[in-house]
Design a protein around this nucleic acid. Structure first.
Ligand SMILES: [Mn+2]
Ligand SMILES: [Mn+2]
Ligand SMILES: [Zn+2]
Ligand SMILES: [Zn+2]
Lengths: 151, 151
DNA sequence: ATTATTGTTGAAACTAAATTGCAATAGGAG
DNA sequence: CTCCTATTGCAATTTAGTTTCAACAATAAT
């Protein structure tokens, strides 16, 4: 999978916009890792590799990368937005540890049933669902138990 | 239901904090409507009723009101956080129209099954789930169809 | 190849949400 | 009532995100 660049290039061209080295650097850096990311992190990663791309350019290009369906917003945390890949990643939801921040991705077919049921009941044309399940992972629960904080 | 005030009062006392007229005004105003709300809106509602409570006090008290389980964060939209009642409101999820902003609250028992399944599979102690289902409501779909935008 | 058009860039200014420092005030325990 | 210290309003600050602007560069036309 190194197709993101080509896809984004053609998306940009089709919109009558221009392919620039900055756009290439940004999209490459985003897809150089499979993790969830945020703007600041991405900016630092680019800088560390010697790129001179500005934060303004990242902020300006993220909406385009979302529009091209390569990434999407996942959650707003610590005062800023976080993103993840869509391309090459398939639909999934998140199980998150409130203590250590661990994230587990999962897919549950029943959610599509629920979606369908809701669409019928409330006469909605449903585009997507986002389920976040939050709690304590096994490590964090063990630590808490050892410390005697919770049951 | 006018019990929120008493509950918050005793929560504040138990924490060794102080009950003030500002806290009373804020909690009363929050529970004077059943709608989702944000800080600015709440501030304006208070001012219109002649309250002199500052925004800083609202920002300082919202975390306490959340800690007392009377309200919670629902979603971050238009650059700021939105909240909703928990007390007197029961757990529910949201179906939202991406076009007009309409929000429908629903409860689906299958979600608790999914929760349970995930807890077992990934060894998590689950605290809660949040499901947002987004799409177009029937009115918005009709308008779009009339305008010939989508199928 | 040259030129014209116009989208893109980095830097800096700006906006708005949320937080914090501070001096004045006021709960509430004793 | 007295004292201790939490809370308040205000203003300053911080930070995410947007916008302005002049220099630049991708692309199409000539
Ligand atoms: Mn993910
Ligand atoms: Mn709700
Ligand atoms: Zn954990
Ligand atoms: Zn609608």
């Amino acid at each position: 999978m190194g197709n993101e660049i080509a896809l984004f290039r053609s998306f940009i061209s089709k919109k009558g916009l221009r392919n620039t080295p900055e756009r290439e650097e940004i999209i490459k850096e985003i897809f150089s890792s499979h993790d969830h990311f945020d703007v600041d992190e991405l900016y630092l990663r680019l800088r560390q590799k010697g790129s001179r791309v500005s934060k303004a350019s990242i902020y300006r290009n993220i909406p385009l990368i979302m529009e091209s369906c390569l990434i999407r917003e996942v959650w707003h945390e610590d005062g800023h937005m976080h993103y993840e890949h869509i391309y090459g990643h398939g639909h999934h939801c998140h199980l998150r540890c409130i203590q250590c921040g661990k994230v587990i991705e999962f897919v549950d077919q029943d959610l599509f049933e629920i979606e369908k049921r809701l669409g019928t009941k409330y006469d909605f044309e449903i585009l997507e669902h986002r389920l976040d399940v939050i709690g304590y992972c096994s490590e964090c629960r063990q630590h808490a138990a050892a410390a005697g904080d919770r049951s």
